[in-house]
């Protein structure tokens, strides 16, 4: 069983991102293959030096695959990312969604 979490919210505007981040970490601790895909304003915390870099970095360090939508990054002029994040795209997101036995959860 795999989990694909898609985060669209950012911690500057939504304190509920902490809930989602904890859920992602908790699922990873269960031993599930876990991916977090950042899209829309969620990528605002990936810019190197941003206030919430640690929240993202901790997820990557815990073994969660953290991907960021390249278009959302480009749209916001973000080109220097905190370590541990891979630039991704819709092609990869669709492929991840269609991986067998994947549970997809949007936030």
């Amino acid at each position: 069983m795999k989990y694909l979490f898609i985060e669209s919210r950012d911690p500057f505007e939504s304190t509920d991102t902490q809930f989602f981040s904890d859920l992602v970490k908790g699922v990873k601790k269960l031993g599930r293959e876990t991916t977090l895909f950042l899209v829309q304003n969620s990528v605002l915390s990936t810019r190197k030096g941003a206030k919430y870099n640690d929240q993202i970095a901790q997820l990557a360090q815990s073994g969660v695959t953290v991907l960021a939508d390249g278009f959302s990054l480009k749209e916001r002029g973000i080109d220097h990312l905190v370590e541990g994040i891979e630039v991704s795209n819709m092609d990869q997101l669709v492929q991840l969604l269609l991986e067998p036995e994947t549970k997809a959860i949007w936030h």
Binding site: S8, V39, Q40, F71, M90, L93, V94, L97
Partner: peptide
């Protein structure tokens, strides 16, 4: 927009 991008790609 994200939903439409997803649909386009799929």
């Amino acid at each position: 927009t994200t939903a439409l991008r997803l649909i386009h790609t799929a």
